[in-house]
Design a protein around this nucleic acid. Structure first.
Lengths: 223, 223
DNA sequence: TCAAAAGTGTTCTAGCTACACCCATGG
DNA sequence: CCATGGGTGTAGCTAGAACACTTTTGA
């Protein structure tokens, strides 16, 4: 019984949520597109393994966030052999442009090419996880550059969430929660003019739950 | 490389959140307490496997809810061999009293006996998952009997969450969300008298997210 | 002076908390 | 009639949504 790790690496490219896939050159599922990953090594845990595989196989070292999605273990998920997979969500900042091998390409999550095995389901789970966590954590840090304007950040959220987001309210919500802090600098206006936008950065660049609005919380959980 | 499944089965017993453990009779970790589980079979996925193992090994068929917690894969998590584990959270209703084997016992989650391998970490994750999901889903159905009073339900929530919960507000929140429905019947008062309590049941007995209060939700998400 | 883009002020509302008060029962 | 536990009414608070209005730039 083998164990592999797979990563659904997502990035906003051209205002579109995309996932990194490589095209298989052998059977089974010849020519279909697959998630990067590989066999779990003898001396590593699954998270170490997935980071190693991304670095080795697709030369991807700039992963801003990685988390486990779950185990995919249907007995027939890979024909011929028994292979259990631990799937991960990986996020790459939109200002990174890693060079990837020739057989590897970014594809819009909304219109996947023919995919190998159960990898389409893993991509779906990854997108759902990203969407959910964007709204109650500071996970945006893994999509955004170091410094950005609120409207640039809004565009990232729109691309990831797939529905309109108000820049006004986005700023207020994230500022109130202490997720965003102003850098004091401003970005030059575009060619059409307009007021220069203030630049912000994320207060923290590791995952934190920012909306503890889960009801039934402990009484008087004063900060 | 082997693969096992492990279940942290939780139940509220005597107003205390408890977990089902069995005492190991051989090395390694002789006499320490372990989670039920076992090797993944060749023709089953991990969820099927964990349900089978619970039924076979601890004769536990009355599991109201099961969900994956994640993969535990540190290379040295089990001495001697490489064994990757998929951990599950299982919940048993408080009115069930399954008969378990002689080497198996319920233990309060807050004061675990000496545990085997990395099982204590799995129990911690299970408790955290339960606490989190109680507040934004209808997961209470997996702890409560078919019919119950609001104060009985409150006691379950208090035991699981570890902090006081107002029965008044619990009822209102769950009623507003359509999670609880009155059965029209009442429970007899206790020996000290008091108004008879109305009986409720959960509207659905499978997991549903009831608090979509994740901010940044789509605009005008009218029911 | 005007258009474009950014940012602020203000109002509205849903949903939850807190707490007072009323109800139904046993002794 | 009173203690005990259950249930309801209601006021207040907080966070977010919506939208009008002001600010700062380029042409």
């Amino acid at each position: 019984m083998g164990h592999e790790v797979l990563a659904a690496v997502l990035q906003i490219r051209d205002d579109t949520l995309q996932v990194l896939l490589w095209q298989r050159a052998q059977q089974p599922d010849l020519d279909r597109w697959a998630l990067p990953g590989g066999r779990l090594g003898a001396t590593e845990d699954v998270q170490t393994s997935v980071l190693r595989q991304l670095a080795d196989k697709v030369d991807l070292r700039e992963v801003a966030h990685v988390e486990q999605l779950g185990v995919f273990s249907a007995p027939d998920r890979v024909p011929g052999i028994r292979l259990v997979a631990t799937a991960f969500l990986g996020l790459v900042r939109c200002d990174a442009d890693p060079t990837v091998p020739a057989d590897t390409r970014w594809h819009p999550v909304a219109e996947l090419p023919p995919t190998a095995f159960d990898h389409a389901a893993i991509v779906r789970d990854a997108r759902e996880r990203l969407r959910a966590k964007l709204s109650y954590t500071n996970l945006g840090f893994a999509l955004a550059p170091d410094e950005f304007t609120v409207s640039a950040l809004r565009d990232l959220y729109v691309s990831a969430l797939g529905h309109p987001v108000s820049a006004t309210n986005l700023q207020r919500v994230l500022a109130r929660r202490g997720v965003l802090v102003p850098t004091g600098r401003v970005a030059p206006p575009g060619p059409a003019g307009g007021r220069p936008a203030a630049l912000f950065r994320f207060a923290e660049r590791h995952l934190r739950v920012t909306d503890a609005s889960a009801v039934l919380r402990p009484p008087s959980a004063a900060e």
